[in-house]
């Protein structure tokens, strides 16, 4: 098979769909007129495409509409039930503790990319040097975070151009964080995990999402209305499902893996880690 035959056969799919440039279309047409072997391949492939276009279609069954309506009615009721304002200060909700909280941590991982800033810890969590906190934190708390940081997923700051505070992401699910103070007052300024009452942050169940870059950029929009300190998102428990479904509805959502909390502790937090792939 000549080089031009090879080239033409590589382009047959695009030729059939008219996706080549005018010049290439003409070149291919000429070649096919002169080469019987390539003409045969073209006939075969265009036949496959034509048969695919004529495949019989399948329709919804008789019960489809009623079943769908029932689900829509339930969805509308749920939507109504969780329709709470998103932008209220999270810590008012937490201090009331009517609703438990969930923690969403965005950890950005780009395979094949070296970190542009910071360094990788043993298991890869970004440990920015220096790691300026976006909020005021006592030095001992800073130390605590640093200690916890060892042992996490690979994180590069590819999508995140600001220092990553990853106290939550750095905590193994069996870990129980000792609070700076059991009675730490929850405030909207200077927020860190240490500020959350200990009994509300014992169990860090983890939901790991793998998203493409485009999905990640949309996920950030989905999370935009919620309390955030650096890359830590705090979501009321009753909104977590909705947030997860939002993320899973994105084009570019690849996978979700749930890691249950340790049996010894109650699940007051959900840690969501997002991995971004090319």
């Amino acid at each position: 098979m000549s080089k031009s035959c090879n080239e033409v056969r590589q382009n047959l799919s695009l030729y059939i769909d008219g996706q080549l440039s005018l010049k290439e279309m003409e070149k291919t047409r000429q070649h096919l007129a002169d080469c019987q072997a390539c003409q045969d391949e073209y006939t075969f492939l265009s036949g496959v495409v034509k048969i695919a276009e004529t495949m019989p279609t399948v329709s919804a069954g008789e019960d489809f509409h009623q079943a769908l309506r029932d689900k829509l009615v339930s969805a509308a009721a749920e939507k109504e039930a969780v329709n709470v304002p998103k932008k209220r200060p999270m810590w008012q909700a937490l201090s009331g503790m009517a609703a438990a909280a969930a923690v969403i941590v965005l950890s950005v991982v780009a395979f094949g990319q070296l970190p542009k800033m910071g360094s990788l810890t043993e298991q890869g969590t970004l440990s920015s040097e220096p790691t300026p906190r976006m909020t005021q934190t006592a030095p001992e708390k800073e130390q605590k975070v640093d200690n916890i940081n060892h042992g996490n997923d690979v994180v590069t700051p590819k999508m995140v151009q600001k220092p990553v505070y990853d106290a939550a992401s750095s905590i193994d699910k069996e870990d129980v964080i000792e609070p700076a103070s059991e009675n730490a007052e929850v405030q909207s300024v200077g927020l860190s995990l240490e500020d959350v009452p200990a009994d509300k942050r014992k169990a860090l169940t983890t939901i790991r999402y793998t998203l493409t870059e485009s999905a990640y950029s949309q996920a950030v929009i989905v999370l935009a209305g919620y309390e955030q300190r650096d890359m830590v998102y705090f979501i009321p428990q009753n909104e977590v499902q909705s947030i997860c479904e939002s993320i899973e509805a994105l084009s570019g959502y690849v996978e979700r893996r749930d890691e249950p909390a340790s049996e010894q502790v109650t699940s007051d937090f959900v840690q969501i880690m997002i991995t971004v792939i090319e």
């Binding site: 495949m55 399948v58 069954g61 489809f64 079943a67 769908l68 689900k71 829509l72 509308a76």
Partner: peptide, 30 residues
């Protein structure tokens, strides 16, 4: 029908296709 058909072509099972299509329409509604 387009979405049911698409799901069927992907999943190759009519019951699964209808379940998937319903999930699609509920997600979209939400």
């Amino acid at each position: 029908n387009k979405i049911v058909n698409y799901c069927y072509m992907m999943l190759r099972n009519h019951a699964d296709a209808e379940d998937a299509a319903q999930e699609v329409f509920v997600k979209v509604f939400r």
